[in-house]
Structures are given as C-alpha cells and as structure tokens.
Design a protein around this nucleic acid. Structure first.
Length: 210
DNA sequence: CCGAGGATTATCT
DNA sequence: GATAATCCTCGGA
C-alpha cells in the first residue's frame, strides 16, 4: 500500500516574504510523485531567497521581465524551473503576491523516500552526493522544464511540498548565496541562504561549518 | 584533500 | 559574443 499523501503546503504559506518562506521551508518535505504512484521525496535542508524587488542577484532584478523569468511574477505556490549552464535544471518556488517577483531556490534535500529511484537517477555517485546541490536534486527527483509554472499546492502536478518537521532556530545557519558571479554589493553578501547546521546533505558551497 | 578546467546551450547584449 | 542561482573529472600532494 502506498503511503498517504499529506496535504501540500498551501498558497497562504507561499504568500509571504521570500525571506520567510526560505527559512520556513527548512525541514519540509519535497515530494515528487511519479506516474506509477511512487513517491520520491526528501527533507529540505538548504534554500536561497531571491526577492526580486531590488535584488540584483535575482533574475527579476531591476524588474526586468524576460521570457525566462516570467514565472517569477506568477501566483505564490507555482514552480519556476529553468536551465543553467546549458545542462542543469534548477527548482524554485514562487513566493509573495502575484505580480511581485520573488522566489526561493531549493538547493539541497536529504533523501527520505524512493531511495532506489534516486540511486538509479544518480549512477556512479555516493549517497551523500545524490541530492546535495540544486542541480543534483532535480536529477535525483526527475524534475525538469515540464514543471515550470506547475501548481505545487496541488498533488495533481506530481510535485509539491509537505510539512514534515520543525527546525529550531538554534539549528539554522545563514550565509551569502552561491554562484552570484559579479553581482554588486550589497546583494553579493546578503545572508539570504539558509541551511540546517551539521546536516550532511547541504551543498558543497555551504561548507561544513555548523 | 584541493584547485583548475571542461561540459554545453538558452538567454541576453 | 559572453554569461550563467552547476557539476564532474582530472592532476597533484
């Protein structure tokens, strides 16, 4: 018998500041349900917020609208999935009210369900490397561009996030976001990356501290 | 363990 | 034409 799906986090959860949503997503469970009903999931252990209002590190910085970043203006609770470096898909969730561009990048998860599927999707890698990076986890969970703009507040989309466990403030670490290149200050150094201290599945960029 | 460099292509200038 | 919210491999220690 398949596990019962818990209700997905709803629009009210996502309709808040991206800085809050990024923090609150720590400990939640990212669920991918395959066409055959198999649940593949993991606990979110690392996130980054892109506020988009004046944030020059955001794709929506300067409020410049392009075909790629258009989903950032969509309703809270939608997915923004885009390709980077020509080969990797990155998963974001839209936060804040519609027409107000903001998103949270899911950077790392700790595998919980469907470990056999994940192992198959990530051949020749150690378990600790299966989902410890934004592109690694999309490969592990078979998330691609077809999920762009998907409604992740509904299980019908095959992708959603459930409440799972509460992470106390004493375990939460913050630091600058990764891979921003020549983004100017102060955006380059803003502590808008959140992770669970000591978790073995955080991305390499988060270091081992904490 | 660590750092350097390649992969690979949509997107924007 | 250059860049990119990355990952992997390889060489050296």
């Amino acid at each position: 018998m398949l596990p019962t799906d818990v209700s997905p986090l709803n629009v009210d959860f996502y309709n808040r500041s991206a800085l809050i949503v990024a923090r609150e997503l720590l400990g939640a469970r990212l669920v991918r349900r395959l066409p055959d009903g198999t649940r593949v999931s993991g606990k979110i252990v690392e996130t980054e917020a892109y506020t988009g209002i004046d944030d020059l590190a955001s794709h929506a910085g300067r409020h410049k609208r392009t075909p790629r970043n258009m989903p950032m203006w969509k309703a809270p609770g939608r997915a923004y999935v885009y390709k980077t470096y020509g080969m990797y898909w990155l998963l974001n969730v839209i936060a804040e009210p519609e027409d107000q561009p903001a998103a949270v990048l899911i950077r790392a998860i700790e595998p919980l369900e469907g470990l056999d599927v994940i192992a198959r999707n990530r051949p020749d890698t150690k378990p600790r490397e299966w989902t410890s990076g934004p592109a690694r986890l999309t490969i592990a969970l078979s998330i691609n561009g077809s999920f762009n703009e998907a409604d992740i507040t509904r299980t019908e989309s095959g992708l959603w996030i459930e409440a799972h466990e509460n992470v106390p403030d004493t375990l939460v670490r913050t630091g600058p976001r990764i891979g921003l290149g020549k983004t100017p200050e102060p955006w380059l150094s803003m502590g808008w990356r959140w992770w669970i201290g000591g978790n073995l599945n955080v991305s390499v960029g988060s270091g081992k501290s904490g």
